[in-house]
Amino acid sequence: MSFRIGVVTFPGSLDDRDAARAVEMAGGIAVPLFHASDDLKEVQAVVLPGGFSYGDYLRCGAIARFAPIMNSIVTAANHGFPVLGICNGFQVLCESHLLPGALTRNSNLHFLCRDQKLKIENTKTIWTSGFKPGQEILIPLKNGEGSFQCDDETLNMLESDGRVIARYVDFDPNGSRNLIAGISNERGNVVGLMPHPEHAIESLTGPSTDGLTFFTSVLHQLVGR
């Protein structure tokens, strides 16, 4: 049996198809979910993809937070439902207060698109359990507002609780505090990541296949539930 993983399409989502493809490559069943409906269609996990939801007007992710589908996702996530937010999805998770902090304009002001090396810091979350502790991976990074910011208290909490799941290595792309590329919630079921694992699942189109592990991780974790 396989598991149903939902991929939400907001107006302005770009990477929903790649995310769905990554789910299928990992062995899951990708289920398209629509922003305007609150129906989770009996999926067992959800991916919020990259893009520019609602044009990123006001602030990235600010308007998507109030989409009907997000009401269902926030309620489910608070009960342990797995959610992965990639890039714009990470911004939506922060705006929804499922994750602390906020993503702001890259410190160098440039939209950056590059293959970025990351170090996986936490392999206990539902989405990172397939990695080895300290494993270095190479996946695409592409954003204009990827600088992770939070107050000192939140930063200390994230660090001391081991909730930083990935950090930028060798190059600081955006001025994120402590080079943070991704974080999780306390339970480890909600993960936000700025770079794009769904673009690194096949050697033909990606710099590696390292990204696939995020999607195989959740499927393995769902088996154990």
Binding site: T104, R105, S107, N108, L109, S147, Q149, D151, G175
Partner: peptide, 14 residues
């Protein structure tokens, strides 16, 4: 406004 402790690269560029 961004809080004073939050980096404002746009303001810096101006």
């Amino acid at each position: 406004m961004l809080k004073p402790e939050i980096l404002d690269p746009q303001g810096q560029a101006v």
